[in-house]
Structure formats: C-alpha cells, structure tokens
Simulated assay, not measured.
Amino acid sequence: MTVTCEERSFWWDAGRPALATVEPLQAVVFDLDGALADIERDGQRQAFNAAFAEHGLGIEWSVEEYGRLVCIGDEQRRIASALRRAGFGRVSAEIAAHVHRTKNEVFEDSVLNGDVTPRAGLDDLVNSLYFAGIPVAVVSTGARSWVDPLVRQLIGDGIADTVVTPDDLPRPGREPDLHGHALWELGLGPESALAVAGGPRGYLAARAAKLATVVVTTGYTVGADYTGAADVRTSYDGLLAGGCEVLHRRHWAGR
C-alpha cells in the first residue's frame, strides 16, 4: 500500500524508550520569525506604517504601541481595530483588507531590498554550528516567496540544510508540522535536534514537536511563560555550538 503525505506519521510519535541514551546534537532548527530576526518590530511594523501612509490614513504605530497590538494574531483584525479607534466605523474591515494587501507587498519588497537585519550574535552562532558540522534548519509561518531570500540574507546562501514553510505541508496551518517536517527532511528524531525560538508561538510549536528548545526573547516576547525550555535568554551573547550541545544534553539527561 502506498502511504501518502497526508497519512505520514513520524517514527518518534510512538514515544521515547524509558532507558534511551542521550543522543548527540545533530541539528539546530531556528524559527525565522523572532529567532533569526525581530521581524515584527523591524519588518512588519514598518510595513504596516508604510501601508497606512500609502492609503493616507494618518496612522503610525510606534514600537511600544505595536507591542501591545501583536496579541491580535489576525493582521486584518489588527488593522481594523486601529481604524475603528481612528473613527472609520463600519468600513474599517473593508479598508483593512486593502491596507493588508499593500502591507504584504511593502514587506516583501523590504525583504528583497535587504532591509531586515539579523539579530545580534546570530552570525557567530551560525558560523560555529557550520564549523562544528551541525546542520541548520529554518522554519517559518511566512510565504516562501519572501522566506527563502530572507534566510539567505540573514545567515548566508546555502547555510540552511532545509527551509520549511506552510507551502511544504500536506495540512497547512499546523505549526508543529513545520518542525516535524524539518526533522523528517533531515532524517532525525527530535532527541537529536535543538530548536531555537524567539517567542511563545514558536516555542509552543517546537515543544509540540517534542524538541528541546532554547528561547531567545525579543522586546515583545520577554516575560512570557516558557516553562520547560532548555534555556531562556534575551540575546545570543556567548551562545555557540558548544553551548547548544550542553543545553541539548542537559535537557534530555534531565528527562
């Protein structure tokens, strides 16, 4: 019988044997959105502001204000909420749809123009992983049209062994599948990899995929609940391949 992508299950779904030894670290899976770059603050926020300006709406989100708004996960609802507060009333949802399309175009252009920069210290970590022979994977909930060029800009061309977006999934929208698919492409189980997330959304997705996870918070994600994380940091300062191996081993040894 042929097994389709929709029927595929991962071998680690059966659980980890009670007496299993700790596997060596064989890959690090980064969440693009927050871990590689502070995309919300430095990319999406500025694209929203440019879209508002293009439509002549007189709205501009500061770093602090946008930090309060990111809790509204649906971006069109986020825009409509701001429009209602600005007095646009019942037409807010309709205007928001137009603004959102413009924002997506502006954001993709900014990515292609190299306007989004990597988080401080990321280069050192990625280079140390490369020289240690530890493969790097990247997952993102974004569109491949901008994810691929952005990954190349942030960590270099050809550095990531695999980049996984919802376009690769048989059932788009299930975030844990991004990490599971990355592991599947690498030929690894979760005990052999370490995830790096930038906030609660990426952290929960990585943990749902059974990965030991390091969280490197941003200004918007610091202080959230990361219970069970292998480590929670505010920066990459001093984190290199050897440190990743220690955190990975400590996490699984403690289990």
Rank of each mutant, 00 (worst) to 15 (best):
S145Q: 12
I59E: 01
W184K: 03
V29P: 03
D148C: 05
A80I: 08
V111Q: 00
G223L: 08
W252M: 08
E245R: 15
I39M: 11
D13P: 07
D167M: 07
V151K: 06
V126G: 03
F131L: 12
S192E: 11
E64I: 04
A86N: 03
R77F: 03
T218A: 07
V136L: 02
D123F: 03
D31E: 15
T4K: 00
P166Q: 14
A137P: 05
C71N: 00
D109L: 11
A96R: 04
G243L: 04
A132P: 01
R90L: 13
D33V: 02
G223Q: 12
A206V: 02
D148Q: 11
Q26D: 03
F48G: 01
L169C: 13
R85P: 02
P200R: 15
Q26E: 01
G67S: 10
G142T: 05
R201I: 06
D31H: 06
P200S: 15
G242K: 07
V147N: 02
T117H: 09
A193C: 08
V116H: 05
M1A: 12
G228Y: 07
D161V: 06
L25E: 07
R101Q: 14
G228K: 00
S110L: 01
V222H: 06
L154K: 05
F88T: 10
K210Q: 14
W61K: 04
R101C: 12
A80Y: 06
E108H: 12
A96T: 09
G173S: 12
L154G: 09
A47C: 09
G58R: 06
E105A: 15
W61M: 14
A80M: 03
T218F: 04
G34F: 06
T227G: 13
P135F: 05
S128M: 07
Y130L: 14
S145E: 13
D31R: 03
E65I: 02
D148R: 09
R68L: 13
W12I: 00
W11Q: 04
F88L: 15
L178V: 12
A86D: 09
A208M: 00
H55Y: 14
G43D: 01
V99L: 07
T227Y: 04
G133W: 10
A206G: 04
A143D: 12
G156E: 04
Y66E: 03
L211Y: 08
E23K: 06
A27K: 08
L36C: 15
Y220F: 15
R85F: 04
W11T: 05
T218G: 13
H181C: 14
A80G: 07
T213S: 00
K103A: 07
R85C: 00
G199Q: 10
G180A: 15
A27P: 09
G189M: 09
W11C: 08
Q153E: 04
S62K: 06
D109E: 14
D177G: 08
L186M: 14
Q46Y: 05
R207Q: 13
R77W: 05
G15Q: 05
N104I: 09
R41G: 10
L169P: 10
A160C: 09
A51C: 05
D237R: 11
G67E: 11
R45E: 01
L178C: 12
G156V: 08
A143V: 10
W252K: 08
E175Q: 15
G238I: 04
F10S: 09
V151N: 10
A182C: 01
G238V: 01
D74G: 07
L69V: 07
Y236H: 07
